[in-house]
Design a binder for these strands. Structure first.
Length: 277
DNA sequence: ACCGCCGGGAGTGTGA
DNA sequence: GTCACACTCCCGGCGG
């Protein structure tokens, strides 16, 4: 689908509408299609890209069939968010978004599966907007975006942006959202830092590297690894950082164990980041 | 100097 | 219309 010829392309309000109609159309098609992707025995994962000039594409991946006996673990988009309001109002211990598992107990992750990005589940007449972390997870599953964003360690949900192409990913995100102005990595990273407050994604103390909250990862449909959840980089350990991108880092206990020592993320950072001392 | 990162704060679009 | 939310956008600053 070509929406414009030649960069820079600015998404207009009309284009946003077109996007909405496009999603509606896909919605309908997927309900009526006889393609394998509409087979109830399969889940599908689809990436909507409308950005030919940037190389963002529509892609559809068949990851794994769902066992017929297994009910589709579709994320309930109406469930309570991991939002900061919990952090602020409830006095709940950090991290609000971390699954409530006892320390040291393995967390059962669903096997690799499809998760529905499109059609986006609706409640009422509205449609839940795509969140940045959802888009990033989607991009991480997209081989076409591998030159922009990659898993650092799928087991613990760490990923990194490819320095050379991180702006391209940001532009794709901006276009996906229908922004008028061009999204930059700087702005996207600002949004990512906001996730640190709610715990959905935290910054790993390594260049261009972030980490999904395990609960988010679980909701998004898991990753290609086993159920082992590992902690973020142990900043207090030797070197204070993980290895270079691409090298699986070895961590100690699970995420909860790490953060469980710090009621609030800020405290965790304070205790581990010299700049916060 | 450059880049990545951080955080404040105002503005914006959307859904309820 | 109002509100909350999730960014978006701009800025100044810090550190490697």
């Amino acid at each position: 689908m070509v929406l414009a010829e030649g960069p820079p392309y600015k998404m207009s309000a009309l284009d946003t509408d077109i996007n909405q109609h496009f999603q509606d159309a896909i919605d309908v098609i997927q309900h009526h299609s006889e393609s394998p992707y509409s087979d109830p025995g399969y889940k599908y994962y689809e990436t909507l890209g409308t950005h030919q000039p940037l190389g963002c594409q529509i892609s559809c991946y068949l990851v794994t069939p769902t066992h017929p006996d297994t009910p589709s673990p579709v994320y309930d988009w109406t469930s309570a968010p991991l939002g900061s309001q919990h952090l602020q109002s409830s006095g709940q211990s950090w991290p609000p978004g971390v699954p409530e598992v006892s320390v040291g107990q393995p967390v059962a992750l669903e096997p690799p599966q499809f998760y529905p990005v499109l059609p986006v589940p609706r409640h009422g007449k509205g449609r839940k907007k795509l969140r940045l972390y959802e888009y990033l997870h989607e991009a991480l599953s997209d081989p076409a975006m591998a030159d922009s964003i990659q898993w650092t360690d799928t087991a613990n949900g760490t990923f990194h942006f490819v320095s050379k192409n991180k702006e391209r990913l940001a532009e794709c995100w901006g276009q996906r959202k229908g922004n008028r102005k061009t999204m930059t990595y700087q702005k996207m990273a600002r949004a990512l830092r906001n996730y640190s407050r709610s715990g959905e994604i935290i910054k790993v103390r390594r260049k261009l590297t972030y980490q999904f909250n395990p609960a988010i990862l679980q909701r998004l449909g898991g990753i290609d690894q086993g159920p082992q959840l590992r902690a973020p980089a142990n900043p207090s350990g030797p070197g204070g950082a993980q290895g270079p991108p691409g090298e699986p880092a070895s961590y100690g206990p699970d995420w909860y164990s790490w953060y469980g020592h710090y009621p609030l993320q800020e405290q965790w950072f304070s205790a581990t980041d010299p700049r916060h001392l």
